[in-house]
């Protein structure tokens, strides 16, 4: 049974995307990568369920090939 929710959860998906994009505006690639690393840790802990995090990793890795 997958636990990861992939159905849209944000009432305003555009605003959510915007918040994540704004966070990295004007950052160098390196600084953005560091920010993302911190964000991943914060969000992963907030989820607090390693099964969900592992499913998210699988989805993230699989999506790369479908670019």
């Amino acid at each position: 049974m997958p636990k990861l929710v992939t159905a849209a959860q944000f009432a305003d998906p555009d605003a959510a995307y915007r918040a994540l994009a704004d966070a990295r505006r004007n950052l160098s690639d390196a600084a953005a990568a560091e920010l993302d690393a911190r964000l991943v840790l914060i969000l992963a802990n907030h989820i607090g369920d390693l099964d969900v995090v592992r499913e998210a990793i699988v989805l993230a890795k699989a999506s790369r090939d479908g670019r």
Binding site: E34, R38, V40, L41, N45
Partner: peptide, 23 residues
């Protein structure tokens, strides 16, 4: 380098967040 970045992110968060200190 990518693993180091994640490790450094844990260290950077540690003073502010308990979950990171535990990592």
């Amino acid at each position: 380098g990518a693993e180091r970045r994640l490790r450094d992110a844990v260290l950077a968060l540690a003073p502010k967040a308990e979950f990171a200190r535990r990592m």
